[in-house]
């Protein structure tokens, strides 16, 4: 081994050991765990552990709470994801025009929710959504709407959480869109103008295609993040009403850390992993086609 390799080994050792032991090993063990009946009795005595192959998965696919939880999670991601992208792209376009003054100020303001603590703002929104004294219903009352029981009505509960998620997250993707917009050469817009394209034409034929890779990155990052939704329903609804806000990670948390059915919970986590992988691949494939 030469000196450089030896040095590299020393520099890498702490991080690789930490990541290996506390990330990769547990991930692999998680898959193994999902093939066992690890539960409360196993924690008491490890000899109770049995290999049961895919029985956890079979049981999951046959249970209604599984389909509810994954359905809710997909609903959250499929509505919340595009909404986040639209709002953040709109904000990026407005902040980035040549006319706009105080750009840094607006960028900072729109970004502020991103750095707030999710648990804390979930508590704040819970009160903003309150059916009687919540500010949202009061504002709606002024224009003759409502009152709506935002978190208590099965039709609106997940939607309310989506609005919180968009508010909390759009600043992050806005920054990425601004970076993408600034990479588009000004000449392309000039050329389109000479060809007679209006503002909408320039947006459709210059901005959108040039932002292609940015859309892909944003889409994947947002999907990965949103499919892991947990803290908002944990704080705001505990999964209710009528299980409308139970999510995949919440199901895993309850089964694994409340009822200690760890084998079963590991299967939930692993299916979530597959869903996230599929969401990533679908978006990459879609991008290739365009």
């Amino acid at each position: 081994m030469n000196a450089e390799t030896r040095a590299a080994l020393l520099f890498l050792a702490p991080a690789m050991l930490l990541i290996g032991i506390f990330f990769f090993a547990p991930v692999i063990a998680g898959f193994a765990l999902s093939l066992t009946d690890f539960d409360l009795y196993t924690i008491g005595d490890i000899h109770n552990l049995r290999f049961i192959a895919l029985r956890n998965y079979r049981e999951l696919l046959g249970s209604s709470i599984f389909w509810t939880a994954f359905g809710n999670t997909l609903y959250f991601a499929l509505v919340g994801g595009p909404l986040t992208v639209i709002v953040s792209l709109g904000a990026a376009l407005l902040v980035n025009t040549r006319l706009t003054r105080y750009k840094a100020f607006f960028r900072t303001v729109y970004f502020a929710p991103v750095v707030t603590t999710l648990v804390a703002v979930s508590i704040v929104f819970k009160y903003l959504y309150h059916p009687r004294f919540g500010v949202v219903n009061r504002a709606l009352g002024h224009i003759g709407l409502g009152p709506v029981d935002w978190l208590g009505d099965p039709r609106f509960a997940m939607l309310s959480i989506i609005i919180l998620a968009v508010w909390k997250g759009f600043g992050y993707t806005m920054i990425i869109f601004i970076a993408g917009l600034q990479n588009i050469p000004e000449e392309l817009y000039e050329a389109a103008k000479i060809d007679g394209a209006g503002p909408w034409g320039r947006f459709r034929h210059v901005t959108v295609p040039m932002l292609g890779p940015t859309f892909l990155f944003v889409g994947i990052v947002v999907a990965i993040g949103q499919l892991q939704i947990f803290a908002e329903p944990y704080v705001m609804t505990m999964g209710g009403p009528l299980n409308r806000t139970v999510t995949a990670v919440m199901l895993m948390y309850q089964q694994g850390f409340k009822w200690w059915r760890m084998g079963y919970a590991a299967a939930v986590a692993f299916i979530l992993f597959l869903v996230i992988g599929a969401a990533t691949l679908v978006q990459m494939r879609f991008q290739e086609k365009r």
């Binding site: 506390f22 990330f23 499919l227 895993m252 979530l272 990533t280």
Partner: peptide, 20 residues
């Protein structure tokens, strides 16, 4: 190999991590 970790949701490892 490390970069693979970026698409693995941390929840997958959380149960064994707790036991560890």
């Amino acid at each position: 190999l490390l970069l693979i970790a970026l698409v693995i949701p941390p929840q997958v490892g959380m149960l064994p991590l707790f036991l560890l």
